[in-house]
Structure formats: C-alpha cells, structure tokens
Design a protein around this nucleic acid. Structure first.
Lengths: 358, 358
DNA sequence: TCACTAATTGTTATCGATATCATCCTGTCG
DNA sequence: CGACAGGATGATATCGATAACAATTAGTGA
C-alpha cells in the first residue's frame, strides 16, 4: 500500500470547492472508488480501519455523496412520492408528518406535492413524480383520471391510497369510510334528541371526502326518519372558516328552526360558531354545531367543538409502513385495506344541557 | 427513412410494463434516442412532424421520461431544496406554497424538509438535500451549525435565508426584522394608552424568530419607560394554542393588573383569549391580547385578534424568485436583502373602546 | 450551377456512482 | 503442509439520459 501522504502533485486541497467525485476521494485515500462507495453503506464489507480513513478524508475534503448518480446504477431512486390535496390543511400536514417520520432512518426521502383538490393537477403531479422514478407512491383519495391510473399501473410500483375507502382500489388502502364516520355522528346526535339537522359543505364533488361525508349525512338523516337534511353548499372546496360563517347565516335564514348543524370540517364549524357568537346567538343553547376532523382549534376554542377525531398522523405513518412492507416483501403481498380509526368526540358545542359559561 | 410500421419482430407491445427506455421509443419511431430526447424539450430543434410522431409513440408505449438519468448527464438536478421549521404551521406552509407556485412552469421541483426548529436537524437535512444536488436552497432563519455553513459554502449553489434578517447572511435574504415588527406593535398599542405590557412566548432560543420578537418587545417596553415587561415563558417552541391558555393564567396570577398581553404568535394568542373567555373574563374589556402572524383564525374568531400581518406567501414566492434570478444570471449577482412587508392589524382584541358584543 | 447557410438528425463520449465478478490475502483445519 | 473458506479490495461494464460535435438535407443567392 502506498504512502498515505502521497497526494503531493495533486492540486486537491482540502476544502476545495471544485466538484468532488468519489474517485478523487479514493485517490486521496489510496483506495478504489468502489471501496469508498462501500464505506458509505453500513452493510458492505470494508474493514473498520479503511472506513475510518475514508470518512476522515470525506470530512477533510468536504465530499458529499451524489445520490443521483447512485440511483441510476442501483436503479433505486430513494424517493417515495406523496400527493396531498393541500399543505395548508393541518389534517393533511399531520399525515405528511406521519409519512416523513415513518421513512426516517430508511434512507427514503419523501417527495411531496399538493394537488389543490384537483384530479387534473394530480395527474400532472403523478407524471412529474414518476419521472423521478419513486419506489412507491401515496395518494389521497380514490379519484384519479384514467390516464393517471394508466401511468400508475405501468410504473409498476406500490401505490397506497389514503383517507378514503375507494371502490376500486389500485393497490393498498389506508383509510376509513368518511360517510360511515359522518353517519355515526348523525346517529350519536340524534340519540341525544336532536331532530332538525342541517349540513354545511362545499359545492362541488372536487373534494370527494367532503362528498362522502355529505352523502353519509343525507342517508342517515333519512334512515332515521328525520326528513331530508337541510343542506347549504358554499364555495369551492376546501371550504374556509369564513365561508362557514357565511353558510350558517344562509342556512338559518332559510331554516330558522334548525337544531344542529354538521359541517364538512372543523374549520367551517369554527367559522360558523364564531359568526353565531358575533350575532349574539349562543352555541349550543340557540344552535348546536359540530365539525369533522378534530383540528387543534376545536379542543381550544369556546365553546369546544364536537367533532370526529381522525387519526391523521396514523394514516400517514401506516401508509408509509405499508409501502415499506410492499418494498421489502418484493411487492408480492396481496393488496390490503388497512382501516384507521375514528371516533366521535362530544364537546360543548352540541351539549344539550350545559350552555357554555360566558 | 424506413417504413414507419416496421417494429414487426420487436416484442415491444404498446403498454408493455417492462422498463422502457428512450432508446426503445426511438427504435419504435425509427429515429435516434437523441431526437427523442430533444422532442421532450421545447427549445430543441426537432421538426414538428417528428415531434408529433415521437409523442404519439410515447403515449402509445406509455413511456415516462427518466429525470434521474438526465440530471446526471446534464448536471442539473431540477431540484430546489427548502427547509422550513414545521409544515403544520400555516405561516410556513403558506411560504412553501409561495415557493411551489413560483417554481411552477420552471421545470424545477421543490424538495421540502422540516427541521422541527432544530439546527441539528437542519444540518442533517442540508446534508441529505445536498446529496440530491439541488440547484439552490432556501432556509428559514439565519441560525445554522458551523458544519451546515461549511457544507453550503462548498456546495457552491445559491442560498436564500428567509423570515429573518440574519446578521451574517450566507447569500441572499428575503425577510423582515421580527424584533422591529414586534416593536411596532408595542408602540402602536402604547400610543393607544396601554401601559402595563405582558408577553407570552416559548422558553428557549430554539425559535430564533420568537427570540427576536421577545427582545423587540422587551427593548421597546423599556424604551418607552414602561418598566420591564412581564414575561411568561411556556413550553418548547413552537408554543401551542393550549400552552397559550396556560401561560395567560400564570401571567395573570403573577401580575393581575396587566393591561395588554402580546403573544409570540396568533396561535398562543388565540389559546389565551379562549381561556380568558372560558374563565369569564372579557377580551378586551378585562384584558387586551394581541398575536403575531395574522393566521386565518385571527380574523374569524371572536373577538378578532390584533396581530402583525406578515406576507408569508410572498416570502416564499420572492425567495424562489431570487433563487431563479441567481440561477439565470450565472450566480454573479451580489447578495441582496429583500425586505418583505408587515403591518399592524388592529382588531377587536385590543380595542380600547368597544367591548365585543356577546 | 455551386458553394454556403440553416435546419434537422445522428454518433459518440460522458455524467458519477454501483453491480458484478475477479483477485488477493490471511488464517484454519484435516 | 496444502487446500480452501471467507474477508477485503479492485477492475470493468453499466445504469439512461444529454453534451458536443459530425453529418445530412434542403434551400438560397451569386
């Protein structure tokens, strides 16, 4: 083996900003590039002593591994793609956090995109993502354009759909039935004596989870013999806090005797409650209001909001875990449906007895 | 030119799931791979007719461009890395959205990571990002570990620091002075007659923007001769809504005569207001409370919250724009500081006259 | 008509790592 | 003592696109 201090006529000074390659690190240490490559992976067989010398050289030179080169030859990009409707929505950002956390230490990196609740945008993003050759992809919901489905099928990587139970799943699913969850909420409130139910949601079918919640509401209200629900649609999904406030005004103008209003999400429920308070109505004394999603705000605000708690973080974490399973078992696992929990959280905003202290 | 229907003995069926390469598309069409490559980029010179035939073949075969291969030879990854403290915070997710929007149509993709307010985590993420050879990187704040700074210097890519005005900027900066903004809020409220100021913030220096706001508060209160501010620290940053509620209780126990409380963020302000309301105090009649950040909630809740509006989306958008400038001008531009605006938004929660209607 | 320019397409080398197989060395066991 | 296992390392081909330059064709003006 040569003298370790040999790099005499090399113009490589430690800290030199020029593009460093593995080969140069190798030459500096006096080994082959292959050995340097091995030293970067803990499993590969390199003697401890060599690895140490290589890592010292890496530090001294300031070399940073180039994964884009590596992924080409290893045919593993190290990416997992994930598409969520919005990153400004704390439900979905919790899900994204769950995915990121589950991927920690696996060497896989999350490539995040947001579809803005549009399947067209989703299709574009799927194509953009597939160009990076992700090893798996996580989608929100089960609505996809035909072309998106084709691209996914051809990509031949595990797909996980989340947050819903699609009728025609692509591969795996991690989610829950939004319509069942909403139905449970209706039944729970009906059992407390509420009879005249209103509903606030967005106008279009863009938000499929919203549509499912609405149909769960409608179906259950009719099943219970409480007549057709009083439904107000307002704004393009996702419906905002402010729109929740506007919607409750419309709803109460049209059906002033409404006893309880369910909202497609906590955000609109919060907006509705605040608007009522502002107008001098007391919640729940004058009107009861419930949301969906159990956002942080709902347990803090006054009155606290009755809602459906959804395991957002768990959805992300499990979706990533299922993807990892599929990658490890050679993608031979059957496509499973993983149900995630939800539960009714009864709080002040629908309390039949106690009006909130003010 | 050969017969276009030639692929007779090729076993390539359209829609075949096997790994497709550009060369196979080329063979299918009867051109060279280079021509296919050109067809994918709008600037390159390919006849319209050829491009059309190629794109039809791409559709028929279901070929998807492989950017990881392309970035290796072109030495352009097509990535911009961005690190934010948290994706669950709507201020930062607005910033992320601004960046994504600014990068739309540029062919650059955002690689997002969250540091959880830790410079150590940031250092790890910077290394992970640099392994993907991003063409630029956007950071939040000006606090970085020495090793992080070294890696960034050596990477030799444009860096934009956001949300603050670091004393020792790396390259470009897009942000504002958090301490000046908070000082402005203090002066504004003082000019309305408030004298006894309290402050609620997190405990440690992890959240540098929080620390800057606090010092802006403290300095200004003293400058105005209003004695040392009454400060309560609570919880590990980022301080939550719930902690805001707990903090205001401590603060009022210790200094019951406090007239106005400024909070490090709207979230803690909201928690504080709700806790006061719950305890039968009226805001602002009994105590005035202000926040920072102008989150959606602050213009909706009751009472509406006085706050500092920050152009979160604009920070992201401009940060990305500055990065694009630097990339186009060959990185020869001087390192500039782009100031983003902020303004005091006076609302009900500090209104000296009108108590909110309840 | 012919040299010449511009538009279009092809050929070859290359980006920087890793897969794969070959080689070398050391120690062990019959 | 010789053969062989296994650990450590090296040599070479390769991943799939693109840069750079070469070649071909069509059109243009003298």
């Amino acid at each position: 083996m040569k003298n370790e201090d040999e790099p005499k006529d090399k113009r490589l000074k430690p800290g030199d900003a020029q593009k460093l390659t593995m080969a140069e690190v190798a030459k500096y240490v006096g080994v082959s590039a292959m050995t340097v490559s091995r030293a970067f992976r803990q499993d590969a067989s390199v003697s401890e002593e060599t690895r140490k010398r290589i890592m010292e050289a890496v530090d001294a030179l300031g070399y940073v591994l180039d994964l884009s080169a590596g992924s080409l030859s290893s045919r593993r990009s190290g990416f997992i793609a994930a598409l969520v409707p919005s990153i400004n929505n704390s439900n979905f950002s919790d899900t994204a956090r769950g995915m990121t956390d589950a991927l920690e230490k696996t060497g896989l990196q999350l490539l995040l995109g947001y579809t803005d609740y549009s399947t067209e945008k989703e299709e574009e993003l799927i194509e953009a993502m597939l160009r990076r050759r992700p090893e798996g992809i996580i989608l929100t919901g089960g609505s996809h354009t035909p072309r998106a489905r084709r691209m996914l099928a051809q990509a031949d990587i595990p797909v996980v759909e989340t947050w819903e139970l699609p009728e025609d799943p692509i591969n795996q699913v991690v989610g829950f039935s939004n319509s069942e969850a909403m139905a449970l909420l209706v039944r729970t409130l009906a059992s407390q004596g509420y009879r005249k139910f209103g509903y606030i949601g967005g106008t279009t079918a863009r938000d499929t989870r919203g549509s499912q919640r609405r149909s769960g509401f409608q179906r259950t209200v009719e099943e219970l013999g409480l007549g057709p629900g009083r439904m107000i649609s307002f704004g393009v999904p996702p419906i905002t806090m402010e729109q929740g406030g506007q919607a409750i005004v419309s709803l109460l103008e049209r059906w002033p005797d409404t006893e309880v209003v369910l909202c497609v999400s906590d955000l609109s429920a919060f907006g509705a409650i605040m608007e009522c308070t502002r107008r001098g109505m007391k919640v729940p004394r004058d009107i009861a209001i419930a949301g969906f999603g159990d956002y942080e705000i709902s347990s803090i605000c006054h009155p606290r909001i009755t809602t459906i708690n959804v395991d957002c973080y768990g959805i992300g974490r499990q979706a990533a875990a299922r993807l990892l399973d599929a990658l490890h078992t050679g993608e031979a696992t059957g496509d499973e449906i993983t149900l995630t929990g939800y539960k009714v959280v009864l709080r002040e905003s629908t309390d039949r007895n106690g009006a909130p202290t003010v």
